[in-house]
């Protein structure tokens, strides 16, 4: 059983300033929304408010349209998984997972039987009788997830649950979350500062900065059509080319690029993902540039180029992410092409 979750004009003030300001966000039933932002952006506070562990200074939290004001955490049916697994050290793995059933008054036998099913789901049934201290970090977090799911929550909140795991374990956990979503279809709100994690796990991403939601949209939209330069930077976008918008096109050293029809006329930044650009032979792209830096990134290389000065004297720089090792060197000149049908501008 999963539910929708809505925040309506939620604010939180801790006395020294607003941590959250007028947050409005809807998470549809069975969807996964990632709250992405830097430390101190207010994302964990929003999660605590949803869980009932903190109260908003203003605004409402609604589950299936029902206002949760005054409903204590234990009656909300919302489970929270923290970054630290926080398994109860005085209970073994099975009894940790059986905790919520025991609290709801079920017998020890029934609670354990149900808990075992959830341990099976996270592939840790063989560890049922171990003490939490005898598990690895990844196993502990799996048990923590199983314990939260055993609550049969209407909504599952994940507060950076995988950030302390190594990269391989994270990949395993992502696969586990996919499994859980396909089997149980819970509504999930994921807090993370890792844009890749947000993109892999969530259906949509809400970008938070200084207590405000800057943009909420599908994963591709926030990457390729950022509402502001701050969203572009939060999502790892490296290219912001100054220029101006005129008659539906952005004009800059990069040329005259068609942009979104509703773009405001006047100064604006052309936002081009480094992944959407390609290096081509000189004079075969939209613009030429001189390579200033080559940064290996595993299977990709990030090439930074200084654009040739345009006829109006303006210039700029671009980053291009290419597959493998490109056939260019620092100081060399290459053409840059843009494959998109249209560009995207964001206000400065």
């Amino acid at each position: 059983m999963s539910s929708s979750l809505s925040f309506t004009k939620v604010s939180r003030n801790f006395g020294h300033g607003d941590v959250l300001r007028d947050i409005s966000l809807t998470v549809p039933q069975s969807a996964c929304v990632a709250l992405l932002g830097a430390s101190g952006s207010g994302k964990s506070t929003l999660l605590r408010i949803a869980a009932g562990l903190d109260a908003p200074s203003a605004g409402e939290v609604l589950v299936d349209g029902q206002d949760l004001s005054g409903v204590p955490a234990e009656e909300r049916g919302i489970a929270l998984v923290f970054q630290k697994p926080l398994l109860f050290p005085h209970l073994n793995v099975l009894d940790n997972v059986a905790f919520s059933a025991r609290m709801s008054g079920q017998s020890k036998r029934a609670s354990r039987s149900q808990a075992l099913a959830f341990l099976n789901l996270v592939q840790l049934a063989d560890f049922a009788h171990r003490a939490p201290g005898k598990l690895s970090g990844g196993q502990e977090q799996r048990v923590s997830l199983a314990r939260a799911l055993a609550r049969n929550p209407r909504i599952l909140l994940l507060d950076e649950p995988f950030s302390s795991l190594d990269s391989q374990l994270r990949e395993d956990m992502y696969a586990l979350v996919d499994d859980i979503r396909s089997q149980l279809a819970p509504t999930i709100v994921l807090v993370t500062h890792d844009r890749r994690e947000a993109s892999v796990l969530a259906d949509s991403i809400a970008v938070l900065d200084e207590g405000r939601i800057l943009q909420h949209g599908p994963v591709a939209q926030v990457h390729y059509k950022p509402a502001t330069l701050a969203v572009n930077r939060t999502l790892g976008g490296l290219n912001e080319i100054p220029g101006h918008v005129s008659q539906g096109c952005h004009v800059s050293p990069f040329g005259r690029i068609p942009v979104q029809p509703d773009a405001s006329e006047g100064p604006g930044f052309l936002v081009l993902r480094q992944e959407a650009l390609h290096l081509v032979p000189i004079d075969q792209g939209a613009v030429n540039g001189t390579v200033t830096d080559l940064k290996p990134m595993g299977a990709h290389t990030l090439v930074r180029l200084q654009l040739d000065t345009a006829t109006d004297g303006s210039t700029g720089s671009l980053a291009v992410e290419v597959v493998g090792a490109p056939d260019v060197h620092v100081g060399g000149v290459a053409g840059i092409s843009f494959n998109g049908a249209s560009g995207w501008t964001a206000p400065g």
Partner: peptide, 13 residues
């Protein structure tokens, strides 16, 4: 204290 917060979200009064 988060042990107690986890317990509350798991339904413990």
């Amino acid at each position: 204290d988060r042990f107690e917060e986890v317990a509350r979200t798991l339904g413990a009064n």
